[in-house]
Design a protein around this nucleic acid. Sequence first.
DNA 1: CTGTTAGCGCATTCAT
DNA 2: ATGAATGCGCTAACAG
Lengths: 336, 336
Amino acid sequence: MKPSSAAKAATLHDVARLAGVSLITASRALSKPELVSDKTIARVQEAVAQTGYLPNLMAGGLKSRRSQMVAGIIPALSVAQFLPTLQTLTETLAQSGYQLILGQTGYDVQREEALINTMISRRPDGLFMTGLVHAAAARERLQKAGIPVVESWDFSPQPVDMLVGFSHPAVGAAIADYFRRQGRQRVGIASANDPRALQRCAGFEARWGQPVPTALVPAPSGLARGREALSALLAQSPALEAVYCSSDQMAQGVLVEAQARGLRVPEDLALCGFGNAEFSAHMVPALTTVHVDGAGIGQRAAQMILQRCAGQPVTEPVQDMGFSIIERRSTERAAT
Amino acid sequence: MKPSSAAKAATLHDVARLAGVSLITASRALSKPELVSDKTIARVQEAVAQTGYLPNLMAGGLKSRRSQMVAGIIPALSVAQFLPTLQTLTETLAQSGYQLILGQTGYDVQREEALINTMISRRPDGLFMTGLVHAAAARERLQKAGIPVVESWDFSPQPVDMLVGFSHPAVGAAIADYFRRQGRQRVGIASANDPRALQRCAGFEARWGQPVPTALVPAPSGLARGREALSALLAQSPALEAVYCSSDQMAQGVLVEAQARGLRVPEDLALCGFGNAEFSAHMVPALTTVHVDGAGIGQRAAQMILQRCAGQPVTEPVQDMGFSIIERRSTERAAT
DNA sequence: CTGTTAGCGCATTCAT
DNA sequence: ATGAATGCGCTAACAG
């Protein structure tokens, strides 16, 4: 018995032989024990233990047409936004025996399309997307594949299949309304240049009603980008009173840069972020931001996929999860 | 032609028939074109385009015993530490046509073991672990499975197979040395309670030579935990001069709490983090921290796995990636 | 260069 | 409650 890879893994055949039963009985003992006598089950179990048998899900899946895998497509793992969603999705799926296969598009529509094809080749039982499916060919492919598809973190009246998300233009508009309600005049935007962040910018500007000084930085946005962005904004508009930032991470950078320039937040400059990151409530000043239930998105998406895999209909295939502005110190008005 | 899932996906058989060639010729035209005439390839390609054929990798993998998948096991997606590693790993593997299947252990050894079994059932061509494989049974299983395994972000003289990481006790010791060299007297530790962070604490304290006030918080550590930790530390040791934090995120929290208490960093309190996050260089003050090449770990791990999948030997199966202390403003000595 | 034959490991029919 | 045959879709061997 060499420790090398020589020894082929035990198959169900080996288990059946050792247990003195037929192949199919061994199979049933493991996956449908209610159809097999307790004595037989015990014998099979022991044979499994002795041989160290682990089922080959590829073989089982080939026949049963269920791979027990779900494809997950994201722009990039480094986008902190999506982490709670992915974490919950992975966990919820795992509880039902499904694993996630991960793919990253890098915000590139061509890579997204290629990735979707690659994923379909693995015959996943479902597919999860952050964002919408952009390529028309991919949409068609997915529809033809006939598996449950959940698009997320965005909104569309005509999703490929199911959707759990919210409207980014509405977020932008809500922040514009909020700043206006506070009586702010000279507002600016510090945003990443990814499609969803740009939708928020557009929503903000449309509601604001006039051009808004905007500094765009490459996605994914972080603290360093926030510092750059505020510098760029102040160059355009020195008397800035309030800034909407496309992520809380970026807002941290705007805060640091403001402090480095001797600007007080919120007295001289008000800040609103997006995402309600774990740290935002604990910054000084605490950060006003837009809360989105990322973990909830992941859980609902997983439930929808699992439900459909179980053959049940999904009652509400398009869910707007909404959002809410969390007011904190960083946009407090001076008590004049 | 209903748009529903009724229409079964085209198989290679359909493609072959349409192209007027045999099954295996169609197969070769797609996967080993150098063995097939250009004319035939063109005919097959067209049949593929017409049918919308996408290969079934489960079926191919069953026969060829290569699934083109790599299992990736991490504690939790929310641990920012590992993101660059995972991102690079996923990308590098994808370039060679491999996809990553993700599993999360939640730092639980039992879940880790169960997950490894589940993963083996999918017959991945390789397995990547953040950390070491803890359960003895799992180590054995992996060795018997005969696939390339890379453990990472830690060090062990006897890995299951291959390893790319570094020594956490050595990190702790290096920071202790650094503080001592600076002439700091009253030092403290603010650390998460995960196994690797605890190793760094132990290394620090051993090198320091006497008990070090320590505040432990649950992993994963973030800004909020850092604030808590500094409060706890100051309660124990009011005259604290320097703190080592087990992550840069946590160091941010310690900084915020220090500032909230009117302590100046570095004049009143020096700070050293761990991880060299993207933001650390841009904080005010910029954060001294320990740099670890997380992306490099992911890339090397991917290369090792790919090399072994290609049947080539890996010349250096155990790689210590080392680490380095990046000195920045947060530990600067006053120019007395 | 192309085709024929024979499985990969398992689960779904049917039968008993 | 158990078993025998059949095939999921594809590729590794060998032949031609």
